[in-house]
C-alpha cells in the first residue's frame, strides 16, 4: 500500500526521464548533419611562372626555348611540340622526358583550348623533371588551327 501523500507521488513520477526521445534527437541530429555535409575533394596546386609574350624590335618573340602549344585541332584539343601533334595527355610524358630539361619549358595556351589541357601540360612537364615551367598566354583569336 502506498503511504505517500498524492502530492509527493506526482513529483516522483515527474522526475522520471525518458531516454528514448533523447536518443531519437541524437540520431536525427547525426542524420541531419551527415546529409547537409558537403564532400569537397582534396585539392593540390601547381606553381608555374607567368610570362607574357612580347614582340621585340626584330619581330621575334622574347624567348626561343622549348614550347608546348595547347591548341584546338579539328574540334579537339591537342598539344603541339614543334611540328609534332600529340592528341593525348598520356603520350606527352615520354616526349617531354626525352627533351633536355635545363632550358625550361613554356606552355602556351590558345584561347579556345580547355584549361584542363594546359594544366595537364604543366603537370606533365613537372613530372618529366622540368624545374622551370612557365605559362604564356597564347593567341586568343586562333579559332582552331588548321
Amino acid at each position: 500500500m502506498n503511504m505517500l501523500p498524492p502530492s509527493k507521488r506526482r513529483r516522483r513520477s515527474l522526475l522520471r526521464a525518458e531516454l528514448t526521445p533523447m536518443i531519437d534527437v541524437i540520431f536525427l541530429l547525426l542524420i541531419y548533419f551527415f546529409m547537409t555535409t558537403t564532400q569537397t575533394p582534396p585539392e593540390s596546386e601547381l606553381a608555374p611562372a607567368l610570362q607574357a609574350e612580347r614582340v621585340e624590335g626584330g619581330g621575334a618573340a622574347d624567348f626561343q626555348p622549348q614550347v608546348i602549344d595547347v591548341v584546338m585541332r579539328g574540334g579537339d584539343p591537342a598539344y603541339l611540340i614543334g611540328a609534332r601533334v600529340v592528341r593525348t595527355r598520356e603520350a606527352l610524358g615520354p616526349i617531354l622526358e626525352a627533351l633536355p630539361q635545363e632550358g625550361g619549358l613554356f606552355v602556351r595556351g590558345s584561347g579556345d583550348a580547355p584549361t584542363g589541357w594546359a594544366v595537364g601540360a604543366i603537370q606533365a612537364a613537372r613530372d618529366a623533371g622540368f624545374l622551370a615551367v612557365t605559362y604564356v598566354p597564347g593567341d586568343d583569336n586562333a579559332g582552331g588551327l588548321p
Binding site: P41, A47, G109, D112
Partner: peptide
C-alpha cells in the same frame, strides 16, 4: 576556355605579377 585565363594572365603580368598558383584536384 583558356581565353579567360589568358586575359587575366596578361593583366597580371602588366601589374608585375609573375608567380601564381593554379588549383588542381587530386
Amino acid at each position: 576556355p583558356l581565353v579567360h585565363i589568358n586575359d587575366l594572365a596578361r593583366r597580371l603580368v602588366d601589374l608585375g605579377l609573375t608567380t601564381w598558383r593554379m588549383g588542381t584536384q587530386l
